[in-house]
Design a protein around this nucleic acid. Structure first.
Length: 558
RNA sequence: GCGCCCGUAGCUCAGUGGAUGAGAGCAACGGACUUCGGAUCCGUAGGUCGGAGGUUCGAAUCCUUCCGGGCGCGCCA
């Protein structure tokens, strides 16, 4: 690609300038940008500005020096020094045409790269407690984690998607779920029963109870004791149904996990106990008030944290420490945790805990997404999980569809609060941005269909004379395609799938604009038609690639 | 009280160190089809980038502080 070639040229210039002593050696990353206006060239570099201080010379002088050492290149037409010291590159006009050919040649691989090659990354997301259906509150992590995984895969990482099931014996919520379920089961069986004070009261618990009776029968369930052990046993029985349901909802959302990790396994296989012993050996724990504490303050936390409660139960921090060991043992070089805002406060203690446990903090990365608020025509739709007033993710997807759900949830930065407007999502109109993007793709397919009907061969468009693409709007579209691979690597690096949503809208707009000014199929000008068909086909390819990363479909007709 | 996130056009949000001009969508107003999909396009209007300091060649972007909003702060997860 042209941009990579320019970076190589600049590196060579830098090296040459250092070698003959014109510039001091310094470690500066080369960043290329697109100048604000086309007259300023095709690419621009601020290297001289960044080097001015270490070199102790004015930026324009540094730029001059770099330009003198630039090797000859087949890509670059000329170079100018502009403004305070930018080096602007004007490329040979054919470079954009080469991009079109490149897209058609690479197909769905266009935009993929190998910067992450050889590294295994795990993205763990959603991981909602297995005590009920997924709802809109924990829905954001789904499309986000999935699209992030797509992005990391696109830049070459070996990626695995994992869902952590908080189903350990010491998980209070899980046991409470078991107790609530038992109450409903016994109620249905006309046995004595008692719903816990703060139990789960949603109707879905009754559905689970009914299904449990179907699967296991009265005798089996009535025999489960009404105590702590019994609650846990019921929770495990119920979990099977919950997980099936969650997996089904995820599939509806287009999310397939590679692994469902049961926290319970860490207990059953003794990993938790082994970890406690290891921490004792490291001398980073102590006992106080009957509990076992971790000296997280020695590792940057505000206060020490409890690992084992005075009643013997292990805390989430304890299982998190055993869990991260398991991840690393499975060979991941990097572990990404996508958490909801309610978990933001625990990140420092988990990181400190990992440091105390001897885990390199750089192998883990915590991404906190902000809340989603459901609105309908401006009115906030309130939810309460315990009381059972929730909007399930499943209902939402059935209501507005997978594409709309994903696009909406992915269209904002994870750092920002997000209002999901049901009314807007339902409208299949220009107000709904996902249709705008999909319409562009459908239109492209329609043009290609029409062209075939009129006798143009659209499958060997690589034969076209692309030098005929000289219109301003054609150049703008080609430039867009040229920049796409860089946008993908940026989005992956910044963990910012929302950029993809904006990019898709932008590409659709750029295409529609081209469509408005450039007649594609014109029997009077068959050569130009062939060239434009190549451009249209390339645009369709990139749009598909982009929507593929988002996990949104690219329909051929609407 | 402390921590995290946000504050950019009437509304919803991009942009997180670059250039003279801070951009989109929606809403408003005015235009464009006898031909490839009008679910489209073009134009007009709309801004103290929350306020104030600072860092530097250069700040919406980084730092400090204040103001406003959201979320969280348990031997629950």
């Amino acid at each position: 690609m042209a941009d990579a070639q320019i970076v190589d040229l600049l590196n060579a210039a830098l090296e040459a300038a250092c070698e003959c002593g014109d510039l001091p050696k310094c470690d500066v990353e080369i960043q290329l940008e697109q100048p604000p206006r086309p007259e300023m060239g095709d690419f621009s570099c601020n290297l001289a500005l960044r080097m001015a201080k270490p070199a102790g010379r004015p930026p324009r002088e540094v730029a001059q020096c770099l330009v003198q050492h630039l090797p000859e290149s087949a890509v670059v037409d000329r170079v100018e020094i502009a403004g305070p010291g930018f080096i602007n590159f004007y490329l040979r006009p054919t470079w954009l045409q080469d991009v079109v050919a490149q897209v058609l040649l690479m197909g769905e691989d266009y935009g993929r790269s190998d910067v992450g090659a050889g590294k295994r990354v795990q993205v763990e997301f959603i991981s909602a407690n297995p005590v009920g259906p997924l709802h809109i509150g924990n829905a954001r992590g789904g499309p986000y984690g999935d699209a992030l995984a797509n992005l990391l895969d696109a830049v070459g990482y070996d990626v695995e998607r994992e869902y952590l099931l908080n189903d350990g014996p010491d998980n209070t919520q899980f046991r409470l779920f078991g107790a609530s379920l038992q109450a409903r089961v016994r109620e249905l069986l006309d046995l004595d029963h008692e719903m816990p004070e703060d139990g789960y009261r949603g109707d879905y618990i009754v559905d689970y109870a009914r299904e449990l009776i179907n699967r296991h029968g009265r005798e089996r369930l009535a025999g489960v004791p009404q105590d702590d052990d019994g609650h846990y046993e019921m929770a495990i029985l119920g979990e099977e149904i919950v997980v099936e349901q969650i997996a089904e909802t995820c599939r509806m959302l287009g999310v397939e996990f590679d692994s469902w990790f049961s926290e319970r396994k860490l207990f059953e296989e003794g990993a938790v106990d082994r970890k406690i012993e290891e921490l004792r050996d490291r001398g980073v724990v102590y006992e106080k008030d009957g509990a076992l504490w971790l000296r997280t303050t020695d590792f940057g936390d505000e206060e020490d944290r409890v690992l084992v409660r005075s009643n013997g139960a292990k805390t989430y921090l304890m299982t998190d420490l055993a869990y991260v060991d398991d991840k690393l043992e499975r060979g991941f070089d990097h572990c990404i945790y996508v958490w909801g805002p309610d978990h933001a406060a625990q990140v420092p203690s988990v990181r400190a805990g990992m440091a105390a446990a001897g885990v390199d903090p750089n192998v883990t990365e915590f991404i906190i997404h902000q809340i989603v608020r459901l609105t309908e025509g401006g009115e906030i739709v309130r939810m309460s999980k315990r009381a059972g007033k929730i909007v399930s993710l499943r209902d939402l997807i059935e209501d507005v569809g997978r594409d709309v759900t994903r696009f909406f949830l992915l269209s904002r930065s994870v750092d920002s609060h997000l209002d999901f407007d049901l009314q807007l999502a339902r409208e299949q109109s220009e107000e709904n941005p996902v249709y705008y993007v999909q319409y562009a793709h459908a239109r492209i397919c329609s043009i290609l269909r029409e062209a075939r009907e009129r006798g143009f061969a659209t499958d060997d468009v690589t034969e076209a004379d692309l030098s005929l693409l000289q219109h301003e709007d054609e150049r703008r579209l080609m430039r867009w395609l040229a920049d796409y691979p860089g946008e993908v690597t940026d989005a992956a690096e910044q963990r910012a799938p929302h950029r993809l949503a904006h990019l898709s809208r932008d590409l659709a707009a750029t295409f529609h604009q081209f469509y408005g000014t450039c007649r594609v199929i014109d029997e009077e000008q068959p050569e130009l038609s062939r060239a434009r068909l190549a451009l249209v086909s390339a645009t369709g390819q990139v749009l598909r690639n982009l929507l593929g990363l988002l996990g949104v479909s690219a329909p051929e007709r609407m």
